[in-house]
Structure formats: C-alpha cells, structure tokens
Nucleic acid binder design. Structure first.
Lengths: 211, 211
DNA sequence: GAGACCCTATCGATCGATCGATCGAACGTC
DNA sequence: GACGTTCGATCGATCGATCGATAGGGTCTC
C-alpha cells in the first residue's frame, strides 16, 4: 500500500511518464528492486489505481442515489458526490482524469468502459429531468459533459486549507449545475447528509460531517 | 513551423514526457539531429507553444470584449470565445491546459502569470455582474474556476465531425454559464458574430461564419 | 566567369544518462 | 529451514542532446 500511495502522489504531481521507477522507489522509501515485490509493471500499477478509484466512485454514486426517484435530487447527489470525491482525493482523481491516454489500448478500453458506466448515471438523471420538465437544456449530452468537466476541475485547484469547507463547496456546485440545467432556483439547502455519509464510508472518512 | 505543428499534435496526444525526440522527428519528417536546427531544448519548444497560445487567447479575449460595458455581454463573449478556441484548436489548448506541471519552475511561473492575466478578465466580468445584480453567486471565485474548467473541457471531447456546429456549441455554453450564474433566462440569441470574427482573425480562420 | 567564402538545412553516428525491469543474495522472523 | 522482504548490481533499451560532415544556394571579389 505504501507503493500505491507513493504512485498516486507522484503520478498526480508529475504525470505517469514524468515519474520514474526510481522516483517511485525513493518516495516509497524502498529500493527500485523492492518495488517489484509489491507491483507488476509500472502500467499495472496505474491500471490498478484507476480501476479501483473508478469502481469506488461508481459504487458510491449508486449508494448516494439509491432510492431517489426525483431526478433533481439524484443529480444534486451526483454533483455533490463527484465534487466531494474530487476535493477529498484530488491526487487520485487527477490521475484517473488525466492519465487515460498513458494506458495501453487494452487497459484503456477497460478503464473507459468503467467511466462510461459512471457517466450513464449522469445521463439518466439529466434525461429523466428533461422528460419531467424540471430540466431545460437543448443538448443534454453536451450539458452532461460540460457539468462533468466542471465538477472534475475541482481536483485541479481545491485546497482543504482554503476558506471554503467541503459541504459549502458541494452545495455551491449543486446550485451551479441546477442553474445550468435551467432548474428554477430552490432556496432549500440540498440534503447533503447522505452524500457525506457515503463519502465517509467509501473513502474511509476524510470528510467530517461537522454541521 | 513543421516542428511546432508536430509537437502540438504529439504533446496533446501522448503528453510532453510521453513524446520522445525521435517521435517528434519522425512526425516532422526530419532526423532527430535536424530537429535542433529549429528548436532549442524540448522544453523550450513546450514553453513557446504554451506562451504563444496563451498570448493569442488573451489578445482575442481583449478584442472580443472591447467596448462592452455590459457584464452579461462580456461574459457571454468570454465563454463563446473560450469554447470556440478550445473546439477549433483542441490539441494546442490541451497542451496548454494539461502540461503546465511538465514545465520547470521558472517557465511555469511565466506561463501561470499569463493564465492569471486571462482569468482576470473573467473575474472582472463576474464581479461586475454581481455588483450590478445581474449575476447571483455566493462564491464568485469558485464559480469562475468552475466555469473555466467547464469550458476548457470542450477540448477533451469536441469533434468537428459531430452533429453540433461550432456556433451552436458556443451558444449552448454561454447559456449554461449564464444559468449557473443565476442570470434570468434571455431568449435572445447572443451576438456571436464578433466572437466568430475575432476567432477567424486571431487563429486565421478555422471557423466558417456560415449562418 | 571563376573561384573563395558563408549560410541554411540536413544527416548518420554517437555521447553520457536514465529508463523499466530482473537477477541472485542476504536479511529477519517464526 | 522456510517464507516474506529487502537490496546492490546490472541488464538492454531508450532518453535528450551534440558532434562533425555534406549538399546546395547566395554573395563577394578579382
């Protein structure tokens, strides 16, 4: 696990190709030979990081939206969860989002399939909302991609040391997304509690539900 | 120029560290030795690509918003221009957005300063709109970052072969952004003509104003 | 017009350094 | 003595970069 943590940190900071085996070794406080006791090839390590991160996100999204028929609540949960994950695990998510084309063809196919499965949850929430007349967008697929990129961007700049706590960040992004979807402004604060609990459970608690 | 074009293509596709000198040479149909007749180091090449692209974007943004006092029109122009640039020059913009941390400290400082100058235009448009009461957002700085990431994401997926023409894409993103900013829905189609002309001029015409 | 000179563009060969990966040997613990 | 862990040494391949050399086209001087 020491190796995995080192790899996430360095891959996020310098990129997969920018990180050498010896960088990895010194970050993990091991010799470059010992590294291979814990991992396969360097690419195996990257694949493992990406697939487990994506599976975790997919799993969390399923839990956070379970039992929510209302598309508005569902999308709000998806946005909040995505933002929370990216803010709480910026390194991991940055690797997932930025290093896809460092993968071999075979591995990329599997990773992209996972990502597509996750995006399907967003697509359904949006199209359901459009069908029910609560969302208004001329190009739902484009809007989905725009919102996903917007939310993923959080990992590129958010710092827990900044003035904005995670809950406020997630709430704000949910409002941005609903605004972009032409949903009438709701004064009510969204029900973030379930999202926070899912995040705390799935990523073993970097989030303190202090509110 | 042959070398620069090859570098933009390969850096965008495989990343700076993922692209070797010999990859560059064969893409440019030159020997690896001849490459150095046209460029300094590999990093010099990256720096040149990033700074000229950013300067061009900054210049274009200045032209597109010149003389527009209305913050709504200004932000609409910024969004449209940003989206058009990213859709029309996906490779170049992807290099600018993704390879910042492949730069040395000195070079990164210069590049980030350029990017900050550009983001300042967005920040001013948003804060002016908030001050005038036409935008409503609790955290203007966060909203700015969110919108920028949303618009930059276009370079990651847009294809000119898709069903959506550039004009429609830019219009759609402007509507998404205004919605996120809580601006009352305006039925009027934004005045994209000036943006299209600026894009056609600054990037020497990949856009056909066929409308 | 002829030769001398220079400049741009190109290349094959090769430099030292680093790459990802593997080997066999040693360690400690039970 | 068996097993899980660690390492120094080293592999062939590739990295970014430089070398001296060559070919072609201007330009200058006699």
């Amino acid at each position: 696990m020491r190796v995995r943590a080192a790899a996430v940190k360095l891959f996020a900071a310098k990129g997969f190709h920018g990180t050498g085996i010896r960088d990895l070794a010194s970050e993990a406080a091991l010799s470059s030979a010992s590294l291979y006791h814990y991992m396969g090839t360097k690419e195996d390590l990257l694949v493992e990081i990406m697939t487990t991160a994506l599976r975790r996100l997919l799993d969390a999204a399923g839990k956070a939206t379970a039992g929510a028929a209302d598309p508005v609540a569902r999308l709000r949960s998806l946005v909040a969860l995505h933002v929370l994950a990216h803010a709480a695990r910026p390194a991991e998510t940055r690797v997932v989002d930025n290093e896809v084309d460092a993968l071999s063809d075979a591995a990329r196919t599997r990773v992209v399939a996972l990502r597509d499965e996750y995006e399907g949850l967003w697509a359904r929430a949006i199209s359901d909302g459009v069908a029910e007349g609560v969302f208004h967008t001329a190009h739902p697929a484009v809007t989905r991609l725009a919102l996903l990129e917007m939310c993923s961007g959080v990992a590129r700049w958010y710092s827990p040391l900044g003035p904005l706590p995670l809950e406020a960040l997630a709430t704000h992004y949910a409002e941005l997304a609903l605004g972009a979807l032409g949903h009438p402004v709701t004064v009510a604060v969204p029900d973030l509690r379930q999202c926070l609990e899912v995040v705390a459970q799935v990523w073993d608690m970097p989030v303190q539900p202090g509110f």
